[in-house]
Amino acid sequence: MGEVIPARHSHPTISLEQVKLMERQTRRENLGRAWYKFSRNSLSLVGAAMVLLVLLLAIFAPLVAPYPEHVKPFTDFANAKLPPSWAHPFGTDEIGRDILSRSIFGFRYALWMGVVVLSLVVPPGVLLGLVAGYFQGTRIDTIIMRITDIFLAVPPLILALAIASILKPNLSNAMMAVSLMWWPWYTRLVYGLASTLRNEYFVVSAEVSGASTAHILFREILPNVISPIFTKISLDMGWVIIIGSTLSFVGLGVQPPEPGLGTMVASGAKYLPDQWWIAVFPALAIVLIVLGFNLLGDGLRDMLGAEEI
């Protein structure tokens, strides 16, 4: 027997172990309920499967890809522009590289781009939104939100193009450019939610108790905005990858011979429609990854929504 909690009313005495056991039970129940909400829509499961597939392919690319050497500088003009076959399911490109292998490695660049951009963008964007929302109506709010407005007023792709073209065109500059135009959306999103939540009585109650600003921001308000943030992250993965591919397509992202999906579509576009597979398969790869993240995002929204089932 551990420590015993005394009961003054009619409830039986209960040990701390039992309380901890109940906590574990509640957690398990909540996980079960979350999974039920997520899996209710079969499309979320499809999205999750697609994302998982892309993730595994990207991680194990060197093992999975049939011709990993085709990703490095490589030419084989004898086998150039071969249509899809058993040896090359997605065909080969204009200098004889296996498109399937390059697409699989292309996932790495796409995911890398998404992960890096979003991890640069989400924390500062969310933090600024929380602060501005909580201090709604004060000077802090005004300063943060006007800066956000300025960034939102610049057409995003053009800003990215401008930055990427001033600096050396490569993947890391492209990511920097995309990050710079992306954070204000998170600030806006969180600001809107936080400025409503800050008037809820549970926030007032924490203030009355004398809780620190950090507690109120991260323990009271943040958990209530986590669900839309995660949903947006998942949807944004797709968008960031599309923009990254677009930048690659116009020559400002992944540089040849590295296998960026956008770069591959760009170089394959010249051979449409006769050697369609050179452009279409990398394009389908983009569709797979973007669609996967979008469906996953919808599922997350269902799962994290507060409604009781």
Binding site: Y201, F202, S205, V208, S209
Partner: peptide, 29 residues
């Protein structure tokens, strides 16, 4: 000086358990 609000729906944080809600004033005071 403490307060009990009118609307119990809004006065408890929907993302915190009862134990977490009660722990805040206990830890502070």
């Amino acid at each position: 000086i403490q307060i009990v609000f009118q609307d119990p729906g809004s006065s408890l944080n929907p993302r915190r358990t009862v134990a977490q809600i009660l722990a805040l004033p206990l830890r502070l005071h």
